[in-house]
Design a protein around this nucleic acid. Structure first.
Lengths: 362, 362
DNA sequence: TTGAAAGCGATACCAC
DNA sequence: GTGGTATCGCTTTCAA
């Protein structure tokens, strides 16, 4: 701790230790050196309060040991789950994860990619809701290894981890039909998003397959994938439909479903007795809702872990051909869709964990 | 787009444009140059696909235009609210925000601070649950401007934004008492954390002030500040107390309170009829719960905005004396503590927004 | 206005 | 094992 006004550099340390900068660098990087040398350097470093400069180091070493994860909305627990999985995968490496939230804003995403081009990270995992030509163009110009989580057009030569949410929505609707629901509504996220389109398609397919009239089904579009928007969307839905016209609501994700639970409670409607509700993503919020929410898992943790693996592999070998991994959706049944049977509803005294039935895809 | 195997540098561009690297640099940085020069450079940049190298630039310019926010748990919406507020404050500047989640792990925090020392950011906002001597030592060694959100010992000369959660907990308990509750339990977060201690103290003070016996009050400690841990804590609480022994649960934060709502539902207990519940932080989750959760706002957005302001000011003028800002807690009443009167409970048909009564501190 | 050249701080290659 | 030094890519004097 010397004069704090001037930052110590390698040269400072070297002079104080009476050795060369090269030697200081070596000791600091754990390369072979005599014990004598080591102690002198360690001592000098301590006395100067020296800390290596990240830029200078990265300038030479061409690496930062940082990876970035960019998600549309850090407020959505599904991305938190992803992040945790990625973080865990990185724990055995010496990479650190930094997080960027783009707030589902195209401008912010483009901007971020721009600074990523030769930015402060060695690799990027990007999760985007709206993968358009603009974004794709920017991604392909990226000079750092990149993995995209989400649905990418087939011809794009970028590592990609995806899940079939179209099938996921089918699972949800099939489950509702199987438990006796017929007047099924959809509360979707924005339809100018990739997941919005996929979930709408899955809904339509499942309804048709069940012999139900899609065109007659109440469909509401939420302003975004948050619970606030979901709450408003379901309020609109309930306001414009006759009482009893709906006996189930399939929601595009858990946050929207949470808003649905709230809106239904506001209207004095009981879940699942009057209306069943399904979410998607199976976030940790689902089990915590009142009543607990049936949800289609989109394998967030698995997608995160896979993305991390792909990224590390690509950093290791940039020549790898682009890879594509798909994580299958999986229905997790909880109380919000309990059947017309004597299944326990939320108010019932039952201290034990609700049984969570798992079902693979059909 | 030339040979992608070798990254274009200033020299590449300069050669292609037939000018000096200095001129290219100038044009790129918007310094005066002849139109002729400008067009040649622009053209060459486009043809080479040149992107400036962040490290080399930062090495000279000594700035990254990046600020970091490190929080204990990105999965907690209170930090998301903070982040949004910070992000908004930064929108008028040309700083970008990167996020780090330390998972409330001291090792991770220290590690992070280590790499921050002369790291890839120009400033840091740190939110920590356990501000111990070790962490403080590391913070004071930081060479970049830093603002800490959370309770810091008085003598520490670091910019600090705080809220009085001790008083916040008092507000919650006073409210419970005022609405007729007497058998009040506390579900606290870990007591080796700063907020854990503060909230316990506030609870004890308010109970005593109300003439209630703190020592007889059921107190349960949650493993952390998440809803999963909260759920487990409240299950334990209910398992070990006689039915009817509790008519209110004051929770240390909204996530724990959410777990409490779930645990109470499991036990067939109605909220607020049988048991009232309060949370803390007034996250956007609170209004979304069933029933909506009364919560003590800790001014997350305001704290975030304030922290951003302090940080920008300090970057501007490193010589400023350390500052300390306090945001007062504020009670937000919702249905989970509706009084013994005829107040609407969760199942009541009422499409409108629940009235949210605000109360300043006494 | 433009170009030449001196760094920024650390790393790694090359002799010794 | 150790020291000298070229080098990473860019910014910024200083002359011309």
């Amino acid at each position: 701790m010397q004069d704090p006004s001037v930052r110590p550099t390698l040269a400072t340390v070297a002079k104080l230790a009476g050795v060369s900068v090269a030697s200081v660098s070596r000791v600091l990087n754990g390369m072979p050196a005599s014990p004598e040398m080591e102690s002198r350097v360690i001592d000098a470093v301590a006395r100067t309060g020296y800390v290596p400069d990240a830029f200078a180091r990265s300038l030479r070493a061409r690496r930062t040991n940082q990876l970035a994860l960019a998600v549309a909305d850090v407020g959505n627990p599904v991305y938190v789950a992803m992040m945790r999985a990625i973080d865990a995968s990185l724990r055995t490496t010496d990479y650190r994860l930094v997080l960027h939230s783009t707030e589902a804003d195209l401008g912010a995403e483009l901007d971020l990619l721009g600074t990523m081009r030769h930015g402060y990270v060695d690799g990027l995992i990007l999760q985007s809701l709206r993968v358009g030509s603009e974004l794709l163009a920017e991604i392909t110009r990226l000079t750092i290894p990149t993995v995209v989580i989400g649905l990418l057009p087939d011809e794009v030569p970028i590592d990609n981890v995806r899940t079939d949410t179209r099938q996921g929505m089918r699972l949800a609707v099939e489950h509702l039909v199987a438990t006796g629901r017929r007047r099924i509504a959809l509360v979707n996220g924005p339809i100018d998003t990739v997941p919005g389109v996929a979930r709408w398609t899955g809904f339509a397919e499942a309804m048709t397959a069940a012999g139900l009239d899609v065109d007659a089904a109440p469909v509401e579009v939420s302003a975004d994938f948050t619970h606030v928007a979901g709450l408003e969307a379901v309020r609109r839905l309930l306001a414009r439909t006759a009482p009893g016209a709906i006996d189930a609501i399939a929601c595009s994700n858990d946050l929207i479903a949470m808003g649905a639970l709230r809106a239904l409670a506001e209207h004095g409607l009981r879940v699942p007795d009057d209306v069943a509700v399904t979410g998607m993503d199976d976030t940790d919020l689902a089990a915590m809702c009142n009543p607990p929410l049936s949800s289609v898992s989109t394998g967030a943790a698995e997608r995160g872990a896979t993305a991390a693996r792909l990224l590390l592999e690509r950093i290791e070998d940039p020549e790898l051909p682009p890879r594509r991994c798909t994580v299958p959706p999986r229905l997790v049944v909880r109380e919000s869709t309990a059947g017309g049977t004597s299944a326990a509803s939320s108010g019932t005294r039952r201290p034990a964990e609700p049984a969570e039935l798992m079902r693979g895809e059909p």
